[in-house]
């Protein structure tokens, strides 16, 4: 990891994405420093998943640049170093948890030990030999996460990893994300659960393809004069909506 000169692990400049006839991201620029947990928050349909897809290089973009660890997003050199968790669980339901994680591990080039560690990290060791399709929704999404963790990627792009999980598991996963960031990994996490904002080093609030705020939680609270993340976001969204309304009038 010493061979990466840049301090920023993700640099997005003037990203422009059009899906169908809708401009999802008109002109988005953001930089994400290494070794942090970045929360990507905001209303659904605001472009969170599209931004994440652009960062892993599976999104067709109309303009701008996205670079990750100094390389163009999606380039072959990055495919072992970036881990992507899709919102919908993309694992094989007709395989066991262990077979799923081992397969994705082999594709990345790591062995069975790494697979067992990834399964342990998401607390599925007891269910490692169960077919994924027989698991509960929360277990299913943890199996999905284990397949992302298995290659120990330097950049993790996680689209709503804690959705549908109980509070204890959510806390454990956020502890895991914090540990990964402590080890120098960069974790970009989207969420619509505002109380998870306190676990992030930095918060990006995305609404209608525009970044309303890019700051730490204390900065955000101070700026909006509120006491928790949810109120702060509501204040920012109302402010933006008022601005849009004012511009239209």
């Amino acid at each position: 990891m010493t061979n990466i000169p840049a301090d920023n692990s993700i640099v997005v400049e003037h990203l422009h994405v059009v899906r169908g006839d809708r401009e999802v991201l008109p002109d988005l620029s953001v930089t994400v420093p290494r070794g942090q947990v970045i929360g990507l928050l905001g209303p659904s349909g605001g472009g969170k998943s599209t931004l994440m897809r652009a960062v892993v290089g599976v999104q067709v973009i109309a303009g701008g640049t996205v670079s990750v660890l100094g390389e163009e997003a999606g380039s072959p050199a990055l495919r072992q170093r970036v881990g992507y968790l899709t919102q919908a669980p993309s694992v094989y339901g007709d395989l066991t948890v262990r077979d799923n994680v081992r397969y994705f591990g082999r594709v990345i080039g790591v062995g069975g030990d790494a697979a067992d560690r990834a399964i342990e990290a998401v607390a599925l060791t007891d269910h490692a030999d169960a077919l994924v399709e027989n698991l509960s929704g929360g277990q299913w999404s943890r199996a999905n996460l284990a397949c992302t963790l298995v290659g120990d990627p330097e950049v993790l792009v996680l689209d709503e990893p804690t959705v549908g999980l109980d509070p204890v598991l959510r806390r454990d996963l956020w502890d895991l994300f914090r540990r990964l960031a402590g080890d120098g990994r960069t974790v970009l996490v989207s969420s619509h659960v505002m109380d998870e904002a306190v676990r992030c080093d930095r918060l990006l609030l995305l609404r209608e393809g525009v970044i309303l705020s890019d700051s730490t939680l204390p900065e955000l609270l101070e700026r909006t004069g509120t006491t928790d993340a949810e109120q702060a976001f509501l204040a920012l969204i109302d402010e933006a909506a008022a601005r849009d309304g004012g511009a239209a009038a």
Binding site: Y84, T86, S90, V107, G109
Partner: peptide
């Protein structure tokens, strides 16, 4: 349709 293809294409596969 399950998304496994998209995931695989972000790996060295």
């Amino acid at each position: 349709t399950s998304g496994t293809l998209e995931r695989l294409l972000t790996t060295p596969l």
